[in-house]
């Protein structure tokens, strides 16, 4: 579901960039202003965080989760892998604050370790897919013609592909492990990023200063890194905060379909799934990872919305 939203946002943005209405800063053909765009973006984000408490709290939550994930091995109360069959599916006690799972393993410790997988699954595929999207978008925008046509049709194929099915197919094909999940979640989701970067490139290519730069023989690389990419950054940041939560949730869906994280390591999605059988007898078992997941994803969503308010160029005052 969230995929459609991303697609829509990307379409929306691509259209706006193409349309390049009067509010748009880039219409002032001022190369210096273009470069400083990046600085103003950071400034706006800072201002937004100051005024938007929810986004601020979200950011703190995300940082806290990242810290837990990084230092998990140092702060876990018990060995998350140690099986203790006589003490399986027990409610919270002083020793096991969130109780134990179906093997008698400490849920709190597993939750802390699981945050690593969940975070990585959120971040890595996002970075990969956006990387692919940026490169292909630039190539399409710069080359135009046949190359552009082919890349954009490829993007159509990716947009049309049922994503969960594709993820299942990939994991069936290359086996089930974390790497598979990265590939499965990133390989078809680059299309939206590519559309935006392409639109941005096309628009800038027509600008006099870029044309001038090209004509006097400035290297393409310079143009890309100095002018085009900085202009994409705000959109990319927003896209990033939309991709991450949707990837985290996709992994939980994959766990439900049996192709998520692999034991004995665990992700929050897998924990929710495995403990859901015990909803009646040990509700904490499924509620704790579920709520953790909800909070993390919600935090990403809130932060993303705040960022969008702050940096979406068409929304600024």
């Amino acid at each position: 579901m969230t995929n459609f939203e991303k697609d829509q946002y990307q379409r929306d943005l691509a259209a706006r960039i193409n349309a390049a209405d009067g509010n748009y800063q880039y219409t002032e053909d001022n190369a210096l202003a273009e470069i400083s765009e990046l600085d103003t973006t950071w400034q706006r984000i800072k201002n937004m965080l100051k005024s938007n408490k929810v986004a601020m709290v979200s950011l703190i939550v995300i940082i806290a989760i990242i810290l837990i994930a990084v230092f998990a091995p140092l702060i876990i109360p018990c060995d998350p892998y140690e099986i203790d069959l006589p003490n399986r599916i027990k409610g919270p006690t002083a020793e096991h604050l969130l109780g134990t799972d179906e093997f008698g393993r400490d849920i709190l410790s597993r939750l802390m370790m699981g945050s690593r997988v969940s975070l990585v699954v959120g971040l890595v595929p996002t970075i990969i897919s956006m990387g692919i999207g940026i490169v292909l978008g630039l190539v399409a925008g710069f080359s135009g013609g046949k190359v552009d046509f082919i890349i954009m049709r490829l993007a159509d194929v990716c947009l049309a592909f049922p994503s969960i099915l594709f993820a299942m197919l990939v994991s069936y094909t290359i086996g089930q492990n974390l790497l598979t999940i990265f590939v499965a979640l990133s390989i078809i989701s680059w299309a939206g990023t590519a559309r935006i970067v392409r639109a941005q490139t096309l628009q800038l290519k027509e600008k006099e200063f870029v044309e001038a730069a090209i004509s006097i023989g400035v290297k393409k690389r310079t143009i890309i890194f100095k002018h085009i990419l900085p202009n994409c950054v705000p959109h990319l940041i927003v896209l990033f905060t939309m991709h991450v939560p949707s990837n985290i949730l996709s992994e939980s869906s994959l766990s439900f379909l049996g192709v998520g994280a692999q034991p004995p390591s665990t992700s929050w999605g897998l924990m929710v799934f495995k403990m859901k059988e015990f909803l009646a007898s040990q509700p904490v078992g499924t509620l704790a990872p579920g709520i953790a997941l909800l909070i993390m994803v919600l935090a990403f969503n809130f932060l993303g919305d705040g960022l969008r308010d702050a940096i979406d160029p068409t929304l600024k005052d």
């Binding site: 949730l249 799934f273 997941l293 809130f302």
Partner: peptide, 26 residues
């Protein structure tokens, strides 16, 4: 915009896209 109503309404709507579907269903 930017009031408690804003946050509550968006929070409610966003909760829906922030939960694993099978978990919400269960």
């Amino acid at each position: 915009k930017n009031t408690i109503f804003d946050r509550l309404c968006m929070g409610f709507a966003l909760c829906g896209i922030s939960m694993p579907v099978f978990w919400a269903a269960m």
